[in-house]
């Protein structure tokens, strides 16, 4: 429970003795990526999450072609009809096909989530790294802005400003969401940069005479790439939830655009009597969040195998074998490293 493992396993891709190397150079280059992919792939929950996410994207962009209904089309013969062969997920009060509507909303929710996630991670990485690397007044000013944005009630501000992007593009909404979601990660990046700044490879570059912005983008930010990737994923999930929450109250995506939030909001009054009106769009929303959590968790373990979780995960292999000798491959097995013939190659 509380002992350091022998460092025999420490450098995962162990030293290749010189001489034995010929013809393996190209492979060495890709080994890092392959290792990550393999680690990710043996986490079944993460694979499931990825599968789900792909399915959601396919549904959102391919779904509308499968049904004859358009999300703006009213079927005057069917108001509030339950799911059927004609209307797969039923219809709304206005007779709109819920499937077509939800898929349209899903498109918007996904694209907003993605854009906000990327934008906010970019902001946090840049601001955090520059603040910490330059220190002094740069740091003070940037951190004051971070503090201020944290003190400002972001939900309120975006909501108050919502009339201003009514009628204009939803991209304004993306920028606003992004502008209020980077501060915490920005602080994390800043404190990581403080540590990295004192790391010897950064100092080495500095003493070579490499200019500061180059050091930040060549050495510092790539060193926290795994954290930034994971953060982007988490931010995407958070943005989807934030977007739908705002839209739910009418402060987000504006008609004629629809998002999952507006779809749920429009149908919430009838939710108790016609539960499918709630459960289909809400289900899609939950699936986005869930799949992103699974993918994020899997990425963390795959990119950062030294994290406590990932390490202990590999320890489990043995005890799992010992304690549940004949257990069917269930969720437990998801964490057990795959016994592929090339599993040994992880070490070479």
């Amino acid at each position: 429970m509380s002992v350091q493992l022998p460092p025999a396993t420490e450098p995962a891709p162990g030293p290749i003795p010189p001489g034995e190397a010929d013809g393996r150079t190209a492979k060495a280059r890709t080994s890092r990526l392959r290792l990550t992919v393999r680690r990710f792939a043996r986490n079944r929950l993460a694979l499931f999450g990825l599968f789900l996410l792909v399915l959601l994207f396919l549904g959102a962009y391919g779904g509308p072609f499968l049904t004859k209904w358009d999300y703006q089309q009213h079927d005057f013969l069917n108001f509030l009809s339950s799911p059927s062969g004609d209307h797969w997920w039923g219809t709304t009060q206005g007779g709109v096909d819920l499937f077509a509507l939800t898929m349209r909303g899903l498109q918007k929710s996904l694209i907003i989530g993605l854009l906000v996630g990327v934008l906010s991670t970019f902001l946090s990485a840049t601001v955090g790294a520059f603040a910490a690397y330059f220190g002094g007044w740069t740091d003070r000013v940037l951190m004051w802005i971070v503090d201020l944005l944290l003190v400002m009630p972001s939900f309120l501000i975006v909501a108050v400003l919502s009339p201003s992007f009514r009628g204009s593009t939803w991209l304004v909404f993306v920028v606003l969401l992004g502008a209020f979601s980077w501060m915490i990660t920005g602080r994390v990046v800043r404190s990581m940069t403080f540590t990295l700044k004192d790391r010897e490879f950064v100092k080495a570059a500095k003493y070579m005479g490499v200019p500061a912005p180059v050091i930040i983008f060549r050495h510092i930010l790539p060193s926290m790439a795994s954290m930034l990737i994971i953060d982007t994923v988490i931010q995407v999930g958070a943005a989807v939830i934030g977007e739908s929450s705002l839209s739910y109250f009418g402060f987000g995506v504006q008609a004629p655009d629809v998002s999952l939030g507006t779809v749920i909001a429009d149908n919430t009054t009838n939710a108790s009597t016609y539960p499918w009106l709630f459960f289909f769009p809400a289900g899609c929303l939950v699936l986005i969040g869930l799949s992103i959590s699974f993918v994020g968790d899997g990425l963390r373990d795959a990119l950062d195998p030294n994290a406590a979780g990932a390490k202990a995960r590999s320890h489990r292999k043995k005890s799992g074998k010992k304690q549940q000798p004949k257990r069917a491959p269930s969720a437990t097995a998801a964490a057990v490293p795959a016994q592929t013939p090339d599993a040994q190659e992880t070490a070479s």
Binding site: G237, Y248, I264, G289
Partner: peptide
């Protein structure tokens, strides 16, 4: 907790409401 955190609060609220009804 993954499941809960994937849901906006209003979804939990409305779901509980439907359940309670």
């Amino acid at each position: 907790s993954f499941f809960v955190l994937a849901m906006p609060v209003f979804v939990i609220g409305v779901a509980l409401k439907i359940g309670a009804t």
